[in-house]
């Protein structure tokens, strides 16, 4: 039904023109809200990348002496598994360590090419039910042969988490507040549109237009505003990434950075958040106006 689509488009553009300033406020607030939301997601991603690089998601790493003695591995694994606090022990060979390294630093080719896999030690990766119980592990392993070094990563992790959590939560909260503000502004543009066209709506009701027929243009208008905001936020996120992250590639070695693919992965979340906010806001804006 092209004519119907044409009608809708006309209604929507008319609506946007009619209250342009409020629509602009709604679009720009949505933009800032979704930008911050996207930033929060990317920060999370960056933190996860760093944690993965630093620890491979393991609380305790038991680095083994080179060359590895298979019997020592068996003994150590057995002793660790006897401990109730240990949930999982994984023996990571040199090859596996090498593969993980390459995966983490996939974006830094120079690093991958120049590091000799032979320098990466084999290790036992120990997951603990309660990371605080590191001392138990240390006690059991003390004096055992074949161990090069035991690294308790939870302490380091906790500090990293504490700093990033504050940052991430802060950005998330600000983005939520902005999203609420955006919702209110969108509801307001929808309501102004309804008010400007109350006579038309009255006639539509009288001649028997369905509620959805009356609502659709306003709903689309709200969606449109929000998706423009989301689109701008996506572009801006790419801009920020190119401006601030790209120069870091290769400068600070050993730290993996978010890639374009990570930014792309964030897009659906921004669109969904924008759409949900717009629909909820539009419906809320219309609620009292459209009672029969």
């Amino acid at each position: 039904m092209p004519r119907r689509a044409d009608y809708m488009l006309r209604e929507v553009t008319q609506g946007l023109r009619r209250n342009g300033l409020v629509a602009f406020a709604a679009v720009s607030t949505t933009f800032i809200a979704l930008l911050l939301f996207g930033l929060a997601l990317l920060i999370s991603r960056q933190v996860n990348l760093m944690i993965a690089a630093a620890t491979g998601n393991v609380e305790v790493a038991v680095y083994l002496t080179d060359p590895v003695n298979p019997q020592a591995v068996a003994t150590l694994t057995g002793k660790l598994q006897e401990l109730p606090v240990v949930s999982n022990v994984h023996y990571e060979t040199k090859e596996e360590a090498c593969a993980r390294f390459k995966q983490i630093f996939a974006s830094q080719r120079a690093l991958v090419e120049n590091v000799d896999c032979n320098t990466l030690p084999a290790s036992l990766r120990v997951k603990l039910d309660d990371p605080q119980q590191y001392a138990q592990v240390a006690a059991v392993l003390k004096g055992q042969p074949g161990i090069d070094r035991i690294v308790d990563q939870s302490g380091f992790l906790n500090r990293l988490f504490a700093v990033t959590r504050v940052f991430r939560v802060g950005v998330l909260i600000v983005s939520m507040v902005m999203l609420i503000a955006a919702a209110i502004l969108i509801a307001n543009t929808v309501r102004m549109g309804l008010f400007a066209r109350r006579k038309e709506i009255g006639i539509m009701k009288l001649v028997g237009a369905t509620n959805w027929r009356i609502r659709a243009p306003f709903l689309i208008e709200g969606l449109f505003e929000s998706l423009i905001g989301a689109g701008a936020a996506v572009l801006f996120l790419f801009g920020l990434k190119v401006a601030f992250i790209n120069p870091l590639y290769g400068t600070i070695q050993f730290v993996p950075w978010v890639t374009n693919r990570d930014v792309v992965a964030v897009i659906p979340w921004l669109l969904v958040a924008g759409a949900v906010v717009a629909v909820v806001a539009s419906m809320a804006g219309m609620r009292r106006f459209l009672d029969v």
Partner: peptide, 9 residues
Amino acid sequence: PWKVPYLRR
């Protein structure tokens, strides 16, 4: 309520 429009037609 959703049938009211059809009545009004």
